[in-house]
Computed example of a mutant assay.
Amino acid sequence: MIPIFESWRQPVKLLFMAVAVAVVLVSLVFSNRLVKQLAKEERSKIEIWAAAMELLPKSGESSDMKLVLQILQSNKTIPVILHDKTAGSFSANNLKIPEGDASGYLLKKTVEFEKKHAPIVLEELNQYLYYDDSYILKRLQLYPYVQLSAIVVFIVLAFTSLVSSQRAQQNKIWAGLSKETAHQLGTPLSALTAWTEYLKLRSFDPVLIAEIDKDVDRLRVIVDRFSKIGSVPETGTAVWQEVVRRSVAYLEKRISGKVELRFKFPESPVVVQLNEPLFSWVVENLTKNAVDAMGGEGVITYTMGERGNYCYLDIDDTGKGIAKSRFNRIFQPGFTTKERGWGLGLSLAKRIVKEYHNGKIFVKQSEIGKGTTFRILLRRRW
């Protein structure tokens, strides 16, 4: 069966991711082209600057000298180093030279500059001109990464907001549906209670009335559970072994006789903080799923223990198992492998354990054809 919420939520996620990737790619391509264009312009400027250096000794007229000096003085952003091979000297422009060994520092810089750009050779003067990217170009080279970081942050925030919005909407649906269900069940439940009292007065079969009372009490528990969804339920300390046994007791008489229930509980009480009506719902859902997975025949084992600050409850079945790719998806609302299932049982179980008991529920292990183990973790009550 196709998940109810997944059928429309997945396309939205894919579209959102596609748009985000497209924005990032367009931004990176544009920035990269801009950087390359600016780098070419700087290369042209340096070549003109080098040509001016070669013309400087030849400029006899004052007008030519003025133009050459104007060109040389125009470079205020591109770091350059001029190495005179004949004299073995270095001169630099737009570089902060530390005090001390200036020649050694400039020699190291020429090596760095040469790795980025091929030097310009002034053959007539036997000089080599090394240059680095301007400060503007360096900032522009960093800009795509800053922009990418900003886009990633925006995508994360937008995606988180979208997920939160969807989750809030689902929570409203959960709460509204649960409250309405509890309200609708209240009227026939009151009528059933009155009818059982009437049957007692008419001296009907006590055994039959006792069974009806059990089902009426069961309906009261269900109404109580639904009424607690969407609000903060009250919790109290309880012995976990007793809660689990009471939760299973109702189902034990209503499932196939070919299903064996085994309990591996410690002798000492495992005390936890929980709301029994809601937590019993979790145990019942997992037990029903286990029975369905085994086809009404097999063994369900309830194992309990303590580990550090947590207590754990493992519910293990000998059913058909779950593929690893579905370990997380099975807890999503609407996801089900049953032809007539709604896919709400495990989602509800996770909500009860996580939000109402600050615990965890997950698939501990599963093997196709051999069975599945669900684990529930609750904080230990000292």
Rank of each mutant, 00 (worst) to 15 (best):
176 G>D: 13
280 S>I: 01
120 I>C: 12
227 S>C: 02
200 K>S: 15
231 S>I: 13
173 I>L: 10
358 N>I: 09
311 C>Y: 02
233 P>G: 04
278 L>I: 08
279 F>K: 02
195 W>P: 05
107 L>V: 03
250 Y>L: 12
17 M>N: 09
32 N>G: 13
147 Q>I: 13
3 P>M: 01
352 I>V: 10
4 I>D: 00
378 L>P: 09
302 Y>W: 01
129 L>N: 08
308 G>K: 06
260 E>P: 00
141 Q>I: 14
345 G>Y: 00
136 I>G: 08
382 W>Y: 03
239 V>A: 12
90 F>R: 05
99 E>P: 09
191 A>M: 07
25 L>G: 07
130 Y>Q: 09
152 V>P: 06
32 N>I: 01
227 S>D: 07
243 V>L: 11
228 K>H: 01
373 T>M: 07
369 G>M: 08
228 K>T: 14
293 A>M: 14
265 F>P: 02
190 S>W: 04
25 L>P: 08
205 D>G: 08
211 E>S: 14
52 A>E: 04
323 A>Y: 09
203 S>Y: 11
331 F>A: 01
7 S>I: 09
279 F>Q: 04
331 F>W: 02
76 K>Y: 00
19 V>F: 06
357 H>D: 00
182 A>M: 03
85 K>G: 10
263 F>C: 09
137 L>E: 08
187 T>L: 11
197 E>F: 15
158 A>Q: 12
381 R>S: 08
